[in-house]
Amino acid sequence: MFYKIKKKIEPYFYLSPALILYGFFFVAPFIYALYVSFNDWNLMTGEMQWLGLENYRNLVNDELFWYSIRNTLLYVVGRVPFSVALGLVYAILIEKTRGAFRGFFRFVFFLPIVFSIAAASLSFQLLFAPRRGFINQFLSLFGIIGPNWLNYSNTALIAIIIVGIWQSFGYNVILYIAGLKNIDDSYYDAAEIDGATAWQKFRFITWPLLTPVTFFVFVMTMLFSFRVFDVVQIMTGGGPSNATNVISFYVWQEAFRFFNTGVASAAAALLFIVMMLLTLFVAKKMQERVHYQ
């Protein structure tokens, strides 16, 4: 009897350090934020006044909230497919490369992961500069007059998406390389004997066997994309005219710029629920297509 109980409890005992930290740093603040979302919290005096659903009502009536949702969705749609696809393509190309370049490319593509995002954002700001920026100077070689990327509403979000793709695809490359290494060579040998083309090998061996990695990469990139904040804050400050005001920025702005913690907490709670539902939906849909060896 004692042995049975011990066996049941033991795993939780081992998990407890992580669970305590998780509870302390995530669950408790989340529950508190949820509580704040039903209140008007005056940060200066510390007074809290119960408002019920008032903050949520204000939130759904705020045009800027919906605009930030729209921007976030555009950002996710623009960033995720490209960083996943580029990650896959580059991983395959690197794996096909022989010699010293292989290590070099792995190193180069991993750089964005270790690079400070603040420094990278400032560097990209210079790259996107209207007259002396590298991107517009490069475009001018082909007779194209590049826009003032960060100051036009219709190009600012594109610029932010480009930085996002740069930021995440290196990480995806590494994950895909790990995935590629896990595929047994015997599948390719058999396909070779059957006379399969390179495309057929990719289509019927590589792609299906990489679906677990693709699933993971897709979900992680999507979650990272929903949470984008630092690049926006540094490069555009949510502008011009809120063109890059994404939901995380909106939450921060309401809380720490406008001191509207109730609405900010309500927006954060909604963001959490939306992200959770979306992740569950994507996970369910993708699981149906995931193949394991």
């Binding site: 100051n151 036009y152 509403s153 502008g239 011009p240 005219s241 809120n242 710029r257 406008f258």
Partner: peptide
């Protein structure tokens, strides 16, 4: 002030762009 200036700025920059 922060909120008002931020909103006014958004609209003025929309006009300028």
């Amino acid at each position: 002030t922060n909120r008002i200036e931020s909103r006014m700025n958004d609209h003025l920059i929309s006009f300028i762009s």
